[in-house]
């Protein structure tokens, strides 16, 4: 475990916990895309199937349980909580996420490492994670104003992905370990999606103005 990997996991953990805390504390999910949260819950559900079969480490298992628990809790809060659900902006959060799930499913059936159910679902989760943030980015552009917690959420997710890329580079040079090219390409595409957001996030931070994404 290298520092980039640990920092990446901690940043990822912070992103989901910050979001869950926001929703739990202020009983509002304004600005949060339910579609993105459902996609992340699906990503974790299809990726962490090995939690029952392969034991890697206590850390690995605990983190998987936290990610599963927090992502499903967030979906539950937005869908079911009698107060939170009122602040969900369903008119704006209209990204048809089936248009993301189906292509990822097909791509996993076409391009994978091994043709086993577990491997296909794992590959599907890698592709889906790469695009899961799209409904949230679209919602941020539609609502134009970004309340700082949602901005922080996207920022932390982007930081987690960037740190994972540093982790892969570090492992390549130190352990001669290379991640599978599917993981590498999907991870790169996912991180590039955040690059645009980062630019506007830093611009607004530098000029100390409210973050406005171009329409």
């Amino acid at each position: 475990m290298n520092i980039f990997r640990l920092a990446g996991d901690m940043t990822h953990l912070a992103s989901v916990l910050v979001l869950l805390l926001k929703i739990h504390t202020i009983k509002s999910c304004a600005g949060v895309s339910l579609k993105t949260q459902e996609l992340y819950a699906l990503v974790f559900a299809t990726r962490y199937l090995d939690i029952f079969t392969d034991f890697i480490s206590v850390y690995n298992t605990v983190m998987k349980l936290i990610f599963l628990g927090s992502s499903f809790s967030i979906v539950w809060y937005i869908r079911r909580h009698k107060i939170v659900r009122r602040s969900y902006d369903k008119e704006q959060d209209t990204f048809r996420h089936y248009f993301l799930v189906l292509p990822c499913l097909l791509l996993a059936l076409l391009i994978h490492e091994k043709f086993t159910v577990k491997e296909l679902l794992w590959t599907f989760s890698i592709y889906l994670e790469a695009v899961a943030i799209l409904p949230q980015l679209v919602l941020l552009q539609r609502t134009r104003n970004i309340d700082n917690l949602t901005g922080q959420y996207v920022f932390l997710l982007g930081a987690y992905r960037s740190l994972y890329i540093l982790n892969w580079i570090y492992r390549y040079f130190t352990e001669r370990h290379f991640v599978h090219w599917i993981t590498w390409i999907a991870g790169l595409v996912q991180t590039l999606l955040y690059a645009d957001f980062f630019y506007y996030y830093f611009e607004s931070w530098k000029n100390n103005v409210k973050l406005q994404l171009p329409a």
Binding site: N60, F67, Y164
Partner: peptide
């Protein structure tokens, strides 16, 4: 599964 196969990342 050999080492590289084990998916040790989250």
């Amino acid at each position: 599964a050999d080492e590289s196969d084990v998916k040790d990342e989250l």
